[in-house]
């Protein structure tokens, strides 16, 4: 059983002078656990010089922040961050350790879970209390189900699913306290040569009022013509798509919507043949009206849509285009 007094810890991230937004989602996950399992929530912030970021975190969250100094060159790399965090955690074992689902968070969580001999659950969408245990929900069965898991270890490491928890912070009544943990210089094997900005410009997608997006369900490359013709029905419309189509070269990378591409919030989002992988959904959740066209009524995108059309897009879109054309003729 989880010791009642063991804290709920959050590992936050900062890079290039800003807090990684996924850190706030990890904090919301920690707060949700705290409501079910009363224990103090504390934030750990590793970094070469995390003072300014730690102060910002404490101010924005009202939580106690422990800045874990990682001696060595800036930016610090995952290997030294893991070692520095481990030195702290070995004497301050948490009940839950929440980390962002960022590239860095998903790189650091497995080694920490291994050293803590902890259960590790990624893609957490929900937590609930049942039978005296905290259950952690993650998507299963091709995103058709939530599987609730009980940890069999005293410590659990968690990464929230991107988009499943709020990333906005309520204004705290007062800033939290900031403390320091200085560690020795760790064995550094990885060297960071710095950050490269996104090679693509998502400006067209970001500015569009209507986004028509294509997924694997388009079937053949030629069917993208239907997506383009559908988008042409609105001014200020753009065509986007899933990572799979961009990887295939069917769409350019500046048309990619999702975690590793653009985040869009148009007034109308038409998802054509998109299954609704969490990575894609995280990039379009802020959209206004969402229309999903898919042959599979159980596709995850249908749960995120205002209007669900169970049809083959190559059959439905031509019919819709004809209807719009006929409507125009009638109106003349």
């Amino acid at each position: 059983m989880t010791p009642a007094a063991a804290p709920i810890l959050v590992v936050a991230e900062h890079a290039q002078g800003r807090i990684q937004p996924g850190s706030y989602a990890a904090i919301h996950l920690a707060w949700k656990i705290q409501r079910l399992h009363p224990a103090p929530v504390q934030v750990l912030l590793p970094g070469n010089d995390p003072r300014a970021a730690a102060a910002e975190l404490a101010r924005r969250t009202g939580l106690a922040v422990m800045a874990i100094q990682v001696p060595g060159p800036e930016p610090s790399t995952s290997d030294v961050a893991v070692d520095a965090l481990w030195r702290y955690l070995v004497d301050h074992r948490p009940s839950f350790l929440c980390m962002a689902s960022s590239t860095r968070g998903l790189e650091c969580a497995p080694p920490l879970a291994t050293r803590l001999e902890a259960a590790h659950v990624t893609g957490v969408v929900d937590v609930l209390a049942e039978g005296g245990a905290i259950l952690m929900g993650r998507l299963g069965c091709a995103n058709q189900e939530i599987h609730f898991l009980e940890a069999l270890t005293p410590t659990v490491v968690l990464n929230p699913l991107p988009g499943a928890f709020d990333a906005d912070m309520p204004t705290p009544s007062a800033p939290g306290p900031v403390a320091w943990h200085h560690g020795p210089r760790e064995r550094q094997r990885i060297v960071s040569r710095g950050f490269l900005p996104a090679a693509t410009d998502f400006g067209a997608l970001a500015a569009a009022k209507v986004v028509v997006a294509a997924g694997n369900g388009v079937g053949e490359r030629d069917n993208l013509t239907w997506i383009q013709r559908l988008a042409a029905l609105w001014p200020q419309a753009a065509v986007g798509g899933s990572r799979t189509l961009c990887d295939r070269g069917w769409l350019s990378h500046d048309q990619q919507i999702g975690l590793s591409g653009a985040t869009v919030a148009p007034a109308l989002y038409v998802a054509c043949g998109i299954s609704g992988a969490p990575q894609h959904l995280a990039g379009m959740r802020g959209s206004g009206l969402v229309v999903a066209i898919n042959t599979d009524p159980r596709a995850a995108i249908m749960r995120e849509a205002d209007v669900c059309i169970v049809e083959d897009l190559t059959r439905f879109i031509p019919v819709f285009l004809s209807l719009v054309e006929a409507d125009k003729l009638e109106g003349q």
């Binding site: 998507l139 058709q144 189900e145 599987h147 609730f148 969402v290 019919v319």
Partner: peptide
């Protein structure tokens, strides 16, 4: 290190209206 305790259907974030009828009916409704 974990045990599967229960499964459930994920709740929808939006109340999806499923259009019914023939393809032409659905196109007209959309």
């Amino acid at each position: 290190r974990v045990a599967l305790v229960k499964r459930c259907t994920p709740p929808g974030t939006r109340h999806g209206l499923v259009l019914e009828g023939r393809t032409e009916d659905k196109a007209r409704e959309l």
